[in-house]
Each structure stands twice: as C-alpha cells, then as structure tokens.
Amino acid sequence: MEDSTRGRPRVALIQFPGSNCEWESQRAAQAAGIACDIFRWNRDPAALTEYDGYIIGGGFSYQDRVRAGVIATKEPIVTTMFEQVTEYGKPVLGICNGAQVLVEAGLIPGLEPGMVQMALAPNYPDPGGRISDFCCRWVYLKHSCQPGRCALSSQMPPNYVWPVPIAHGEGRFTTRDPQIIAQLHANDKIVFQYCDANGRIADTPEINPNGATENIAGLCNPAGNVLAMMPHPERASFLYQIPSELTNEWGQRKRQAWGEVEAMQQPGPGRLIFESLREALLVAVS
C-alpha cells in the first residue's frame, strides 16, 4: 500500500497523561498537509529526534498538579524536545497546556533558553469581583507581529483579526520583570493579542479574558521557531467548528455553508497556524 504521508513533513504531537486535544490537533495538522504522529510521553525520547518538529497540545498534563505544565516540563521527553528545538532549530507549537509547558520549560519567551522568565498565571478576576476561574468562550486575536517574525504564523497576514476559542484557567501571561515586557516589544515577539472583532486592543474583561499582560495571547521565541499560544487553533481549523452567530466574515461564511457538507469542511482561520507550521517544517527539513 502506498504511504500517503510520504514526502510530508513529520511532527510528533506529544501526549502526556491528561492531554485531551491530541486527536483534533492531529486532524488539523493532517488537513494542513503534515504527517502527525501522537507520541506518548513514556516512549524512548531518542525516537523524538526523528521528527521534523513538535506540537504540544491542550489538556491538563498531570492533572495540572502543583501548577499547569510544571510536572511535564521535568520529563525526559521535554529535555529531548528542548535540545532539538534549541540546537537544531526545529519548530514547536504549544497550544494551551502546551503553551504552559513551553513557558515552564524556558522556551518562551526564551531570551535565555532554559530560564523561566514568565508564567501563565491563573486568570485574573474581573473588576466586578466575579470569580473568573476557568474561561471557555470564543475570542478574537490580532496578529500583532511583523511578517516573517514568527515561523508559525507566517501564512497569516499582518494585523489579521480572527476568531478562536479559549478554554483555560491559567492563561494569564505575566512576569515580575518589567524588562522582559520591554524586550518582548523590542524584539517583536508578541505574536497574538486579544482584541475585539474590529481589532481594537483594550484591557477589559470582555476583550482580554484572563487579564494577560499587554493582552498577550501568543508569544514566540527570539529565533521565531517556537510559538506558545493559549487559544485553540485546532478548534477553528474547519468551517463547521465556527459559531454561526459570529458577526464577522467567518460567521457569514459559516451561515452560507449551512446544509452543504463539503462547504462545512472548508478551512477555518486556525488552519493558517498549521499551514505556517507546515512551511516551517519544510524549511527545517531542507
């Protein structure tokens, strides 16, 4: 039988105990032309070196015990991934819990790789005093960095505003070191920011759902081969996943596709992240 994945770049989607987004992430990656294997955390880490890049998906690795992502970070598989990413420039996409792992692993912001320079802290309670805790809803993101800055958003136009769902309780990018924020700006490392449907960025609970510093939803490392983002692009990768009630172009496309199965399978905006990953993988392979 012919191998349908031959010639495609290969990524390992790392599965920890408690991961719960691996299957839809795999499907989104495959739809973008990536051969994607789910790689269990307790396999021989040496096998990880055979892959062109990595995805760490969402969920609750180790049940978020102690702090989201921190226990997974200490596992040998993350050590191997860290070496592959920092020494060979392989791309890695961290989504939600994957973003938490990348921050606790010192890959994001990665100004000094391996040093933990930020945190994804519990969502900030809104000024009204209501307890935010776990927040699960659709938000809008603005693609804030310049073209070519981040390999994993390369297929997305600058200032592009797109809808995507979030689902997290610890998603507030923060740091105690103001110099880090200054360097994020200076190095154009803020890839995605929470905004409204018109691209307006404001620190209000309606727009910035977790109180993240500078409305940060996604950050890349200085080399641009690591992206950590709290929202879930795999849940916005097909048109059928998009809520019909959205008021922007994506809601309109979804409504137009009603009743047409093939039209519903068309890409959603999150597909651009996986297509960017595909391009980054091809560069890494070459």
Binding site: V70, A105, G114, M115, V116, A119, A121, T174
Partner: peptide, 12 residues
C-alpha cells in the same frame, strides 16, 4: 529554570 524547582513560579 527548566530543571530547577517545582513548587512556586516566582513570576506570579
């Protein structure tokens, strides 16, 4: 750092 400490992230 990645290989140091577990119980508290001093950034929050």
């Amino acid at each position: 750092a990645r290989d140091q400490g577990i119980l508290a992230n001093p950034h929050f």
